[in-house]
Structure formats: C-alpha cells, structure tokens
Amino acid sequence: MTAAARAGFRRVIPGFGPTLGLTLAYLSLVVLIPLAALLMKAAGMTPSQWLATLSDERMLAALRLSFGGALAAATINGVFGLLVAWVLVRYPFPGRKVVDAMVDLPFALPTAVAGIALTALWAPNGWIGKLLPFKVAFTPLGVMIAMIFIGLPFVVRSIEPVLEDVDQELEEAAASLGASRWQSFRMIVLPAIAPALLTGFSLAFARAVGEYGSVIFIAGNLPGVSEIAPLLIVTRLEQYDMVGATAIATIMLLVSFALLLLVNGVQKWHRERMGG
C-alpha cells in the first residue's frame, strides 16, 4: 500500500476523530445508556408481570387517554395550524410579525406555567369556563385543550417554510387552466405541503402523548377518566412500583418510536415518488 493509498482514509478537514468521538461519548452517556437502562429493566420483567400490567384497566385507560387525546389534539392542530400558517404566509396584515413570533410561545413557556394558566382560563369559574354550559377543565376535554396548546407551533413551523417555497406560478398556471381557488388549493398547494403537514402532525402528536406539565393541572387526574399515562408513571414511582412505572414507560416509548418510524417511512416513500 502506497502512502497515497493510506491517505485515502484521511480527511481533509481536521478534527473528525475528536468531534465524532466526543459526540458519540456524550450521546451515549446522556441519552443512550439511560434509555438502555429502561429497556433492560423492562426486559427483566417476567411474563406474569407483563400480563398483570397489560390487563390493568387503569393503565389501559391512561394510555387510551394519552394517545386518543393526542390524536384529537394533533388533528385539530393540523387544521388550525394549516390555517394559521396560510394566513401568516399569504396575507400581509398589520402586526403579522408579532403574531408570527407569538406562535413559538408554547415552545418557550414552561409547561407548568402553561398548565396553571390554562386551568385558570378553562376551570368552571375561569374566564372562559364561566361562559361555557359544560365542563372543560378536569375532564378529558381539558386534557385535549392543553395538548392543543403545546402542539400548535410544531404544525405551523413545519408548514410555513414549505408554503413559502410553493411557487405561486403553479397556482397561476392552475388558474389559467380554469381551476377555481379552492381547486388549485386542494390539487396544487395541499399536495405540495402534505409532507410538511404530516411532519407537523406527527411532531405535535408525539409531543402531546408524552406531555406532562401543561396537562396535569387542567386534567383533574381522575383515575380511569382524566388520568394521562405520564402521570400514572409518576404515581407508580411514588408508590415505589418501579416495575409498573417501567412497563408503562416502555409501552409509551415503543409505540412512539413505531409511529415515528412509520411517518419517516411514509415521507421517504413520498420523497422517492417525487424523485428527490
């Protein structure tokens, strides 16, 4: 092997070894090993322990609420997030910059703060709750409100840049071919932003499934009715039921990852179909 051949393994920009090494070490220490500890704990559970966990009505109800509520909230966010993104990108109006900046509020506002604020608004004696003939806070509806709050920016921020990139000439072409505005939105714009909408939807969904802080204040936490899965993990922990906590956490993790993989798969398929 000549010197030049050995050099083939050398990289031109220096620092590959140290930076990748540090990255992998830190990633392993901070994220991978702790998550592995969870999975190891789960792997150590006996079948009868799993059986007991899986047939626990309270846990099933909590998982149903977390995943079901997140699905509903992400769907609502899909609709309104698309609307907000559309308005922000396409319609110049006074104060648009401020509104655009505000969309990130749920990213920046600590969840506990959001939680007590939402409760103050939607409780039966709250600003909004007072006006409604039915209860929102302390019911599954309240859980959904909190999940809508924390999921909204994911949808808006996923769609905005893609919508900006949609060439308006395409819509003009559609219009010149006789399409109505609604038709050109449905047949031209929507397909173009569909992957971004899916990304935003899945991010909002994933966030809502695991959400804790903003939900527990407004939920009321009635076991079997308005108790979310993350809270049940905390409850199990407080009862020193490590096995119970681990089981719920593992199920949540696995389902979330499966969904993420599915979404990634769909997007990859979509990209390939679009040819790049």
Partner: peptide, 11 residues
C-alpha cells in the same frame, strides 16, 4: 490541492 486523497498513485 490536497482536498481529496487519491486511492493510489503519486503527486
């Protein structure tokens, strides 16, 4: 320029 390394041969 040394920005790519050849698999074999000399410069």
């Amino acid at each position: 320029a040394g920005l790519d390394h050849a698999d074999s041969g000399d410069i």
